[in-house]
Structure formats: C-alpha cells, structure tokens
Amino acid sequence: MAKPNKKLPERSVDIHCGKCKALLYKYKKGGKGALVKCFKERIVEDRTSTPCECPECGNVFARETLVRGAPAYKIIGNKAVMK
C-alpha cells in the first residue's frame, strides 16, 4: 500500500467539534472530498488534551487507527466538521 504524501498539501482547514463547535485541529487537507480521516503527521495545531476527545464537551469524535501504514484518526459520522 502507498503511504500518504510526505509533502504537506497547500490547503489548511479548521476542524471543529460537531456538537459544541470548539476548535479541535488546524489540518493540512489534501483533495476536495469530505472529512473522513486525519493523518497525525498533517495536523499543524492540536487543541485537544486527550486524543479523539473534545476539550469543551468531552464528545468522542474519532478513533485512532492505521491507514495505509500511517497513524491517523478516523472521524465518526458528523461528530467533527471542517470549515
């Protein structure tokens, strides 16, 4: 399996909690599709204290997993949204 590109994409997006709209990450997203997963190496700024949990409301918004051999967070449903 091919690993994700080492060169970070140009486009930067903010990822917010779907429940309370608190800022979770600043993320370098590749492509124009929906937010399905976040590779850990592309997260520029992490505002969470515990992984995959909103610091404001405690909502669990993702699961830790390996995607194509790289560590990533797999987003659950609409529990995290990008702007």
Rank of each mutant, 00 (worst) to 15 (best):
L24I: 06
L24P: 00
Y25H: 11
Y25D: 07
K26E: 11
Y27T: 03
Y27H: 03
K28Q: 14
K29I: 08
K29M: 13
G30N: 06
G31S: 02
K32H: 15
K32G: 15
K32L: 10
K32N: 15
A34E: 14
A34F: 01
L35C: 10
L35V: 11
V36W: 00
V36C: 02
V36F: 01
V36N: 08
V36S: 11
K37Q: 12
C38R: 02
F39I: 04
F39P: 04
F39W: 14
F39T: 02
F39D: 02
K40T: 10
K40V: 10
E41L: 06
R42N: 12
R42G: 07
R42L: 05
V44T: 12
E45L: 06
E45S: 11
D46C: 10
D46Q: 03
D46A: 03
R47A: 10
R47I: 02
R47H: 14
T48E: 09
T48W: 02
T48D: 05
S49V: 13
T50I: 12
T50F: 02
P51E: 12
P51S: 09
P51W: 03
C52Y: 01
C52W: 02
C52F: 02
C52A: 14
C52I: 04
C52H: 05
E56H: 13
E56P: 03
C57T: 14
C57H: 09
C57E: 08
G58M: 10
G58P: 00
N59W: 05
N59G: 06
N59F: 08
N59M: 13
N59T: 14
V60T: 10
V60D: 04
V60P: 09
R63H: 15
R63T: 11
R63Q: 13
E64L: 14
E64A: 15
T65G: 04
T65P: 01
T65L: 11
T65C: 12
L66H: 04
L66G: 05
V67M: 07
V67Y: 08
V67D: 07
R68N: 14
R68C: 13
R68T: 06
G69V: 00
G69L: 06
G69C: 07
G69I: 00
A70L: 04
A70C: 14
A70S: 15
A70K: 14
P71C: 05
P71Y: 10
P71W: 11
P71E: 13
P71F: 06
P71K: 07
P71T: 05
A72G: 07
A72Y: 00
A72H: 04
A72C: 09
A72Q: 05
Y73E: 05
